[in-house]
């Protein structure tokens, strides 16, 4: 067990049939996840980060999507498993926290009941034991007067409390991988900080691995061990949080961080990246960022750039990667 990687993704691609043609949402991505690690997939809308996350739980509609490549979880090939085995996996080995807990919870059952159901589905325990664990979980995510909250319906809770309850539900069966899709984006600033600190603490306590999808550089900086920056369905840059966030190399990461407003920029013109992300139904043949890139060369438009790994453990997908590493 110890030497099989917890999660490994190789050549993952996802395409959807749409009325306008085939949308290539994810275009051949590779990454691994170690036990106890927090990986952030950072990208803007349409970069493929949420689709990637859903692919890791086999949640994509199988008839409408074409999925290629390989995902292995604890050594098992996810897309070769029968549906029944995948259901055992979901919520037990891998579980997920969504951006909008109001949509993720069933509105007609109490919070406590939904957490207990999850435990009963995966473990051979009594109803009373499941109820006791549900209470313990609500206490663990610091919901005040947890006993009373067990009987609350999702709509009776505030946004922050619902997101805590969602986390409690996700942790019900001690998963080894938690997938979190923009878990704090819908929350107010003061509540966002509470929930991020809670996630960090729970990760440290349980030793689970986390993949966090976010568009917010701040969320990545507050939580990630490693960061993968996504653009048009590809990971353009990968490395430790400090490497990627403090000294970005890919021209897109550089542009993204430069266009993010911070205190030092008052009265200055913002360094916006020109143009807009590409149409996923008509991706360019070469690098998808080339049309917006200040370092564009002839080679960029011919074929997608190769992955260049450097000695310090980071990788950059750019034809100028070697030059970028020196600069």
């Amino acid at each position: 067990m110890a030497d099989t990687p917890l999660l490994s993704v190789s050549g993952l691609s996802v395409a959807f049939d749409t009325p306008r043609g085939t949308a290539k949402a994810v275009n051949g991505i590779d990454f691994g996840l170690d036990r106890g690690e927090i990986l952030c997939l950072l990208g803007e809308s349409g970069s493929g980060k949420s689709v990637t996350l859903r692919a890791l739980m086999r949640l994509l509609p199988e008839r409408r999507s074409k999925i290629g490549g390989r995902v292995t979880i604890e050594g098992e090939d996810l897309y070769a498993l029968p549906e029944r085995r995948v259901e055992d996996l979901r919520g037990k080995t891998v579980s997920m926290v969504f951006q909008d807990p109001m949509l993720a919870f069933d509105p007609v059952y109490t919070i406590g009941r939904q957490i207990a159901e999850t435990i009963l589905r995966h473990e051979a325990v009594s109803r009373a034991e499941a109820d006791r664990r549900a209470l313990e979980l609500l206490e663990k995510v610091q919901i005040p007067s947890a006993r009373r909250r067990l009987d609350a319906y999702p709509h009776e809770m505030s946004g922050g409390m619902r997101q805590r309850a969602m986390i409690a539900l996700a942790l019900a069966c001690n998963p080894s991988i938690l997938l979190a899709d923009e878990p704090t984006t819908a929350l107010d600033a003061t509540v966002q900080m509470q929930v991020l600190l809670l996630l960090r603490r729970l990760q440290a306590e349980t030793g689970m691995a986390v993949i966090m999808v976010t568009h917010d550089i701040g969320v990545a900086a507050e939580t990630a061990d490693r960061v993968a920056v996504m653009y048009a369905g590809r990971i353009v840059e990968q490395g430790t949080a400090a490497q990627v966030l403090k000294t970005p190399r890919h021209p897109y990461s550089v542009g993204l961080f430069a266009s993010t407003v911070h205190a030092g920029l008052k009265h200055q013109r913002l360094d916006a990246i020109p143009g807009a992300p590409p149409d996923l139904t008509a991706l360019p043949a070469g690098c998808a960022f080339a049309p917006r890139c200040p370092r564009r060369e002839a080679a960029c438009e011919v074929a997608p750039p190769p992955v260049t790994a450097t000695a310090d453990g980071r990788s950059v997908v750019c034809v100028s990667a070697a030059a970028l590493a020196r600069s």
Partner: peptide
């Protein structure tokens, strides 16, 4: 003050350590 303290760090080596406020508005 609390609102400003809840701003996320952009430096992974200088993370926030405590929430400025408890509870929701």
């Amino acid at each position: 003050r609390a609102l400003f303290a809840a701003r996320l760090s952009s430096d992974p080596e200088r993370r926030s350590v405590a929430a400025a406020l408890e509870g929701d508005p």
